[in-house]
């Protein structure tokens, strides 16, 4: 069986030569153990089933075009069934049914083997990340046995390369599905239940995950970034995330902080180190260190940040963030402040 799987990974190598399969959100461009095994299984299934398909097509083509006995067709079948032909066809049918059975048994076995192998990783997790899905963003908590070493971020997961990470999956509202195709298949997040999956990245890189269960109005814009980085850089990042937000460094940012803390922003967001401590929306303590905004809707940039705050309903209609009426000066200040929260 493992040889069969190796043949499957040959297909994988073949695919990587094609540009189409590669991508930041592709099941055929695996960057983790599970996605790799699944992709291998995929190529194996594809190979076997493609042969079956070609056999059927060939049979159909021959059946439709083979030379026939001559003769005029009366209005009704011109012959009684011939015993010899019926016998031969029945033999063919039996062989076909047995062959089908053998193929699906084999494929079921291979599928089961890969499933076991993937599950084997569950017990080896060294880190735990709790992901809570909300309409329409991801709350990400890095749990640590020492409570003060836990922290929270949003729409972004960073992983140390080669370290299996347990992902605890919860939902606050409706059913969502957590899916980072380059690393692993999907698992649903269901209110009233707690699910788990394990991720391990085999190489550095930035991947895109996306909600895969229809969850309402902005299901299309509920993505997250997954960044796999070497262990030492991950640890450094983790330390930086544990620190409270940087104090504003200049007047503009200071003024922006004032606006933030007095306007509607503070009703929903947390910035550690300030009085903003509401947990409705994403934690913004280190918002400027994240690759994207509004759950993968926009790449992070100062300009996009300003556009988002100015009119979130234009960029992601129906999302839960209201328009906050800020004067251009106030907006500039808030953007400067948030942009300083690395």
């Amino acid at each position: 069986m493992s040889r069969a799987l190796r043949i499957g990974s040959l297909g994988l190598a073949l695919c990587l030569a094609l540009p189409g399969c590669q991508g930041v959100q592709s099941a055929l461009d695996p960057a983790g153990h599970q996605a790799g095994r699944i992709a291998g299984l995929w190529w194996l299934f594809l190979g076997v089933l493609a042969v079956v398909y070609l056999v059927v097509l060939a049979g159909l083509l021959i059946a439709a075009s083979r030379p026939r006995r001559r003769g005029v067709l009366p209005n009704g079948p011109s012959f009684a069934r011939e015993e010899r032909i019926e016998r031969r066809l029945t033999g063919g049918l039996t062989a076909w049914a047995v062959g089908t059975g053998a193929i699906i048994l084999t494929l079921t076995g291979l599928s089961y083997a890969v499933d076991r192998d993937i599950l084997g990783l569950t017990d080896k997790a060294e880190l735990e990340i709790e992901v809570t899905a909300k309409q329409w963003w991801w709350q990400v908590k890095y749990n640590d046995p020492v409570p003060s070493r836990s922290f929270e971020t949003a729409n972004e997961i960073r992983l140390p390369v080669g370290v299996p990470v347990r992902i605890v999956l919860k939902s606050q509202d409706v059913i969502h599905s957590f899916w980072v195709p380059n690393l692993h298949g999907k698992t649903d997040l269901i209110p009233g239940r707690v699910n788990e999956t394990t991720l391990v990245a085999d190489r550095e890189g930035r991947f895109r995950g996306q909600c895969a269960e229809f969850c309402g109005f902005q299901h299309a814009n509920m993505a997250l970034d997954v960044v796999a980085m070497p262990r030492d850089r991950f640890d450094a990042w983790r330390e930086s995330q544990l620190s409270p937000a940087a104090a504003p460094a200049d007047d503009l940012a200071r003024q922006g902080q004032q606006v933030f803390l007095s306007a509607a922003c503070v009703m929903c967001h947390t910035i550690h180190g300030t009085t903003a401590a509401s947990r409705v929306g994403p934690d913004l303590t280190h918002v400027a260190s994240r690759p994207s905004l509004a759950a993968g809707t926009l790449p992070y940039s100062k300009g996009n940040l300003a556009g988002w705050i100015a009119d979130p309903q234009r960029i992601k209609p129906g999302n839960q963030m209201p328009i906050t009426s800020l004067s251009p000066d106030q907006l500039q200040g808030v953007v400067a402040y948030l942009d300083s929260l690395k």
């Binding site: 099941a27 599970q34 996605a35 095994r37 699944i38 299984l41 995929w42 299934f45 594809l46 089933l49 699906i104 494929l107 079921t108 599928s111 890969v114 499933d115 993937i118 599905s177 899916w179 195709p181 692993h184 298949g185 999907k186 698992t187 895969a212 269960e213 229809f214």
Partner: peptide, 15 residues
């Protein structure tokens, strides 16, 4: 048949 496989389905389900 591909979708019937749990691992394959975990990738392509809902896509």
């Amino acid at each position: 048949i591909m979708l019937a496989s749990v691992p394959l389905d975990s990738q392509v389900h809902d896509t």
